[in-house]
Design a protein around this nucleic acid. Structure first.
Lengths: 340, 340
DNA sequence: CTGAAAGCGCTTACAG
DNA sequence: CTGAAAGCGCTTACAG
């Protein structure tokens, strides 16, 4: 810096307030009780000098950075955008900033973040892991503070999730109640080798609902979706049509998959909800604005973000307490795509 | 840290390689030429000890953090999601990490970031300012490295933009060529007091196209949109219908506005493109998957992100060079919403 | 409740 | 091209 006055330091503040640097530190960090009049003098000096603590120096000393990482597979999806939006808001309210990471294109990044969080100058990680089997959470047992989001089947780490089995059951049951009998599961497939925990659970719920109605599962009606996006949904719908099997409803495992599938059905002159009923998961904003609007599973996204951030902050403060799980309630939102 | 071995430091590496800490630093930073065999020995020691530099210590010494901030008004929009996605990718390729900030809900944050970037431990900011008149860029002249994205009318700072005037002209001309005569501009309004530079420019292009075709601008056909989102587009469409004036096309100033408007038109039994033609701006992924798919203005988003990051890195390296402007080319993508 | 000293792990001058 | 010393600005023990 060539221009401008030198930034004030704790020393300057201490000198002006007539105390030691240690006392300034105590006031700034509110760790111990400081006598009110001392406190006042320090704060006045801070104000006068425009003192802002140097976070690099603080980090160097105490190992905390005030930064949490949010690592998601694909940042470009509507669901990711909403998670980022809310996590940033909640983190700010808690005095933390958020560093964003994307893991799908660069799988090593996921491992790297979790195995060397300290080296990356972050206090902890909120992670939506890509694949269950790849997740090093399972292997490594000396972890930094980590909160997993999404339905991951392991028990060493704090988690925020929704009950995907139950949700999968509910949407399928809804379709059965509306008269559908040949219901497609779009996103999971029995026996898929690289299935995610989420897809496995949603598929289980789907199977349970079918079984309750005395309907046997038909592998022809299970379509695997590699990329849970609109493109993936469009490809899956094309694959489904190519199988040339009858169907009267689709349970899409995310709203994005549903949007992609809807587009392809429309191109083929298949009407939703006229010919085929359709449901999604997530209730992204577009679900409400599509024509037809999309029946889907909604969750309290703010509660979701808040739980993730707060679990992480708790974990940062106490590394030894047992892992906790927070389940966020969900509900079925019925819209045009299942209403004839 | 109670468990695990102590992290290796430059000292450890220096001792193992039989050199001074300074030489280790020289090798790690590639600032000066180091004799190949010395270099090899140092790198071997780094490898053996798993040495990773402590970035807090580095920052404390040299003032750089390796962090850039990306500050957008609203993170939940599709356009934001895509910008975040691409900026994070490009920044990683350049060895930087990205801190995300949202400014619409917390307007002070914009000022704070730009006026005290150093205090926030960031090397620079990529900023999409909310309102022209609020932007402190105009007032302050001792700025940290800043790159503005979007059409901001000022010349003190590096900028990445598209030619919104020309784009506004092109979509309007396209609609005129398809026979539309009563074309609504949805997003800007002549004389709006808190108009953004973007909305002003798109409106100017719209006016120019009308003028070229000998059509007089009609204030009844200009609808102001407060929030450039689907909700805002839906509200604007409701407002337009309430005016009870004839129209045969809509130039929406973003794709999101178009989606919101499409939904309301559909609810009122107005067909796109049957009764009304519609265009957007941005070419977000949904534009392709809507029914009908949306005619819109596309830009090379990767080039956009790359230009923003690279301008910023150049600025961080050299604070004194004159401000630069990078214009990203755009093109009209014609789809179903303007094809009868 | 507050002070004086030491040190977190780097890199910047200053020498050679 | 490399070394020995100093210091970036905080906070952590250690005293009192």
């Amino acid at each position: 810096m060539t221009r401008g006055p030198r930034r004030a330091t704790v020393k300057d503040v201490a000198a002006l307030a007539g105390v030691s640097p240690k006392t300034v530190s105590n006031v700034m960090n509110e760790t111990v009780f400081v006598r009110p009049d001392t406190r006042e003098r320090v704060l006045a000096a801070v104000e006068e000098l425009g003192f802002v603590p140097n976070l690099s120096a603080r980090s160097l000393r105490n190992g905390r950075t005030g930064v949490i990482a949010l690592a998601l597979p694909d940042l470009a999806t509507a669901f990711s955008a909403d998670v980022v939006h809310r996590v940033v808001q909640v983190a700010h309210e808690r005095g933390m900033v958020v560093q964003i990471e994307e893991t799908a294109a660069e799988p090593k990044r996921e491992y790297d973040l979790v195995s060397r969080a300290r080296e990356h100058q972050i206090d902890g990680v909120i992670l939506n892991p890509i694949r269950l089997k790849d997740s090093i959470i399972v292997h490594d047992d000396q972890l930094p503070p980590v909160v997993l989001i999404g339905e991951v089947e392991q028990h060493k780490v704090d988690r925020v999730l929704i009950d995907s089995r139950q949700a999968g059951y509910e949407v399928t049951k809804h379709l059965l109640e509306r008269g559908a009998r040949r219901i497609v599961a779009m996103g999971g497939e029995t026996g898929a080798t690289d299935a995610t925990a989420t897809s496995i659970q949603r598929l289980e719920g789907y199977h349970r609902a079918l079984a309750e109605h005395g309907i046997e599962a038909d592998p022809q009606l299970e379509v695997y979706v590699e990329e849970w996006s609109m493109v993936g949904g469009a490809e899956a719908a094309a694959e489904l049509l190519a199988r040339d099997t009858g169907f009267d409803a689709i349970v899409a495992f995310t709203d994005s998959i549903a949007f992609g599938a809807l587009h392809v059905l429309d191109e083929h002159g298949i009407s939703v909800p006229g010919d085929v009923l359709m449901t999604g998961f997530d209730d992204v904003e577009h679900a409400r604005f599509m024509n037809p609007s999309l029946t889907t599973i909604a969750l309290d996204r703010h509660a979701f973000a808040e739980a993730a951030v707060d679990l992480l902050l708790t974990r940062i403060a106490d590394r030894t307490s047992p892992p906790r799980v927070v389940a966020i309630p969900h509900e079925l939102v019925v819209r045009g795509s299942t209403t004839r």
